[in-house]
Simulated assay, not measured.
Amino acid sequence: MSSYAKVIVLGSPITKSNFKLHNSQGRAILPSNSGKYHDKFALYEQEIAYIARSQNPDIVLAESLIAILKVYYKSEKRHPDTINITKSIFDGIEKSGLIINDAQIRKIMVEEFYDKENPRFELELFGESTYSISYSIEKIENIGEKRLYTPIKKSLVSKNKEILPNNNSLSPNCCSICKKILPPDDFISGDKGKTLICRNCFKKLF
């Protein structure tokens, strides 16, 4: 039984960490055929699953694992948060059948790189019965230039909501699919309120 696998998926990695839709039972779902922007998250997972299986035919890792993930972004200035990128990747790896469950990942190291010509991610999985991991952190003698980050300004009021006449509460604007005005408290929301779907359109998706 193999205790090692490697997956390389070309293209700019994406994350679904800020996107969620829920069905009538309250379970999180990820539509892939709505014709909307958020379909890309499910399609990306499917792409990962297909490539992971094609690159590792007949391999199933069933034991606890060490994961080394190297993410290569196209741009140094604009890219997803690396700390969130693992969710989409490991959901896709789990769907491939290469692993049983992403809970098998007990140790993980994630590194961020930049490759304008060849954005991608490279994932290596090591079985803990065969491999171990060690690392060290050392103070740099000649301190280099600091990479500084600035706070992100957020709007106080969602762009997807408006104040309706004779109503003091905020209410959603319209369905993202059929574009009809949504009645208060009778819709499905996702992506932190950025995506709004009426219940009729929602039922057609699933």
Rank of each mutant, 00 (worst) to 15 (best):
Y72C: 07
E112F: 02
C178H: 01
K36G: 07
K139Y: 15
S88C: 05
K40Q: 14
D91A: 06
N166A: 10
F121N: 00
G97D: 07
N23S: 08
K77L: 10
I83F: 00
H79F: 08
L205Y: 04
Y73W: 15
E162P: 02
I143Y: 04
L30N: 04
K179G: 08
N200F: 09
A52P: 14
E45M: 14
F19C: 10
R199T: 15
K139L: 10
I29A: 09
A42F: 08
E47N: 13
I197L: 05
F126C: 01
Y72Q: 04
N166T: 06
K194W: 05
F41H: 06
V71P: 03
C178A: 00
L10H: 09
E45S: 02
S132G: 12
F126M: 10
L98H: 06
S17Q: 11
K95F: 06
L148F: 10
S3A: 14
S134C: 01
K179N: 15
N173W: 01
S171I: 09
I152H: 03
K77I: 12
K159E: 15
L61F: 09
I93R: 04
I181H: 02
L170P: 02
I85D: 06
C198H: 01
C175N: 01
E145P: 07
Q104S: 01
Y149N: 02
C178S: 01
I68K: 14
L123W: 00
N160H: 02
